[in-house]
């Protein structure tokens, strides 16, 4: 028995998820912010009062958003959706994007989210008025579920993305330097403390996509491959050594986490894509088709 996934199921769940994402920060990110506050307060740094000020304002802001039911940040972003479609899922494929887009538009209207998408990037830059289209990545997976992972991606941080096509022999140090360079260049622009998503391998475009998918992981989780878990820790140490700090005003927490996703690549290359999330790592996961 498979459960039929209808247009309305997708639309309603995306609507709920987008509304929630914009207003309420996931628990893992909140916990990471609280840890960052403690780290700053006990750092003994001369800049401690400013870095704790920044994080306490962020926590105050989260309370205000929940209380007033308005977005925590006025940049409610472009919506990015990773649609993992089970090959056995009982869903009309032509429904998926339409239902996703309908749900997003309704949530942006009802939630008093800012409509930030323009129809043409260069000519006219006319606002579409409903924050559509979303960026949707489809992937076929085994099983009968439809999993939609979404994030609201603000552009203060998105503008700090980067891609470095390293030589294949650049090794671990090359990867660490590439990521650190991109985060150093970003400085206080992407609203630190950030979460760095790193995609390694594939092609240039694939590495960037992996870096986005990496941002969907639980901030507090550990990479299942111990080599990559260690790499994540090494990069995090380097990033926090930059002392960009909360809000870019200095401090020991430039990044709350580094998440790496790796994939096969070509003998001649070592692509490294970096996507930065601001502290407002607004993500939600929807699983449809469960019994």
């Amino acid at each position: 028995m498979k459960k039929k996934i209808g247009f309305g199921d997708i639309e309603q769940s995306v609507y709920n998820a987008v509304l929630k994402a914009g207003v309420i920060l996931p628990e893992d990110v909140k916990a990471a912010l609280q840890k960052a506050y403690m780290d700053e307060a006990s750092s003994g740094s001369a800049r401690e009062s400013r870095s704790t000020s920044v994080i306490s304002k962020i926590l105050e802001n989260l309370d205000a958003a929940e209380k007033m039911r308005i977005p925590m940040c006025q940049d409610t972003g472009m919506v990015i959706i990773f649609a993992d479609i089970g090959t056995e899922a009982s869903v009309n494929l032509s429904d998926i994007d339409n239902a996703v887009n309908t749900g997003i538009a309704a949530a942006f209207s009802d939630g008093y989210f800012r409509k930030s998408v323009v129809s043409d990037p260069l000519f006219g830059r006319e606002n579409t008025g409903n924050n559509l289209p979303a960026v949707i990545y489809h992937q076929l997976v085994p099983g009968n579920l439809l999993t939609l992972q979404l994030m609201l991606k603000g552009f203060g941080s998105e503008n700090c993305s980067g891609l470095v096509m390293l030589n294949p022999t650049a090794g671990i140090q090359g990867v660490i330097s590439a990521v650190t360079g991109i985060v150093a260049e970003a400085g206080g622009k992407p609203c630190p403390p950030i979460i760095a998503g790193v995609g390694i391998g594939g092609t240039a475009d694939r590495a960037m996509q992996l870096s986005k998918r990496a941002l969907l992981r639980d901030v507090l989780d550990r990479h299942p491959d111990s080599r990559y878990a260690e790499l994540e820790e090494q990069i995090l140490l380097q990033l926090n050594g930059l002392h960009i700090g909360p809000g870019g005003l200095g401090g020991v927490t430039t990044a709350m986490a580094v998440k790496v996703e790796a994939e096969s690549t070509h003998i001649a290359g070592l692509p490294v894509g970096v996507s930065i999330s601001c502290w407002a790592d607004r993500k939600q996961k929807i699983v449809l088709g469960e019994e």
Binding site: A64, M68, P71, M72, G156, C278, A280
Partner: peptide, 13 residues
């Protein structure tokens, strides 16, 4: 002046 980044709900008040 630096304003607290991402704190849109706080500033609305």
């Amino acid at each position: 002046f630096y304003a607290f980044g991402g704190c849109g709900a706080l500033y609305a008040q």
